[in-house]
Simulated scan of single mutants.
Amino acid sequence: MHAASTQAKSAALRTLLRSLGQIVLQPNAFTGACLLAGWLLVEPRLACAALMGATAANVSAVLAGYREADTRDGLHGFNGALAGLAAFNFIADNATAAAVAILAATATAWFLEPWTRRLRANGLGVFSSPFLIVTWLWLPMITSGAPVAPQAITPPFIATQWINGILGALAQPGFGSGALPGLLVLIGIAAASRRHALWALIGGALASMAHVLLGATASSLDAGLLGFNGALTAIALADCGAAATLCGVGVAVLLQAVASYFGWPAMTAPFVLASWSVQGFRHRFTRGVVARKAMERIDPSQQLS
């Protein structure tokens, strides 16, 4: 009985950590542990938020009867973790943030399954879209002070700022910042897939450089705000080929620049929309090729009849 209880607790912990790892698209418990360590290093409040959101979403998925294998892989928990992180990032009061985090995380879990079926029918991944939709629904309801203007420092940037910016971009998907937390995330990604880790660096670096050319400030680079959508897009599209991946990173840069110009809280939306654009094009192209091959296999006399 004791052994069975220990195994159940171990399985639950791995599921929780995989939910955190899925934030950077890795169904790996060690990746999740690296993200958790990064949050503890930056601000323990973020670690509590992620754990709270992931737990609420996973429990909701179990109660809804979703596939156990998907829950174990963290697919039902990571949007909940992001919902919890967003609540504690945008709401200062801990009690209010906790209530919003649990409700929002639960909403992402209940919304996930039908939304995933609809997206997969069109060849699209779900990514962090449930978290974005739920967060955008409650975000206008909160009041906040005027945004702080970024520090007006212009290029050239020194090497340490580039290092901080590129590594910090890997921490930003989980609302973290800093080179050391970003390095922990990179180690976690590399443990799951060295190729994804390389693409994350490439995507983050290219996106950061592109935003600097578009006039981004040094403070934004230091915080890792310039490259995280590019890094996520590069990971998501790594299996689509180099050309498609680089094209997706470019689209993510443009979308983030537009959102920043208008002051929209885009979060990971540029990554999701850029990935969808590439996946949607590939899906339609593949269907067209299959249809043409099917027509070619039909006997010419049948085509004329």
Results as ranks from 00 to 15, higher is better:
Met209Val: 15
Ala11Cys: 01
Leu226Glu: 03
Leu183Ile: 08
Leu40Phe: 11
Leu214Thr: 10
Asn89Leu: 11
Asn229Arg: 07
Ala61Lys: 00
Val59Gln: 07
Ala159Gln: 08
Ala99Pro: 00
Gly168Leu: 07
Val59Tyr: 08
Ala121Gly: 15
Ala83Ser: 13
Val272Thr: 10
Ile166Ser: 02
Ser277Thr: 14
Ala197Cys: 02
Pro150Tyr: 12
Phe175Gly: 01
Phe131Asp: 00
Ala231Glu: 02
Leu112Ala: 13
Leu124Phe: 07
Asn122Glu: 11
Leu180Ala: 11
Ala159Val: 15
Ala64Gly: 02
Trp136His: 03
Ala236His: 05
His76Trp: 08
Gly224Leu: 09
Val258Arg: 08
Thr116Arg: 15
Phe88Trp: 12
Thr154Leu: 14
Val251Lys: 01
Leu214Met: 14
Val62Lys: 12
Thr71Gln: 10
Trp276Asn: 06
Ala121Tyr: 15
Thr55Ala: 11
Thr31Pro: 03
Arg117Ser: 12
Val249Asn: 03
Arg284Phe: 04
Ser220Arg: 15
Ile153Gln: 15
Leu36Lys: 04
Asn58Leu: 15
Phe30Val: 15
Arg284Tyr: 05
Ser5Thr: 14
Val272Cys: 01
Gly168Pro: 04
Ala12Arg: 12
Leu75Tyr: 11
Ala83Asp: 05
Trp264Gln: 12
Ala200Gln: 07
Ala83His: 03
Ala64Thr: 05
Thr31Ser: 12
Ser193Leu: 03
Thr217Ile: 02
Ser305Leu: 15
Leu17Pro: 00
Leu232Gly: 00
Thr55Cys: 09
Phe228Asp: 00
Glu43Leu: 12
Leu82Lys: 01
Gly248Cys: 04
Ala218Lys: 10
Ala57Asn: 07
Pro44Ser: 11
Lys293Gly: 09
Leu41Glu: 10
Gly38Phe: 01
Ala210Lys: 06
Phe127His: 09
Ala56Lys: 05
Thr154Asn: 11
Leu124Trp: 04
Thr96Val: 11
Val278Asn: 01
Thr55Pro: 00
Ala269Glu: 04
Phe281His: 09
Leu213Ala: 13
Ser144Lys: 11
Met141Thr: 14
Val24Met: 05
Leu214Lys: 08
Thr106Ala: 07
Leu237Val: 07
Ala171Pro: 01
Ala11Glu: 11
Phe281Ser: 08
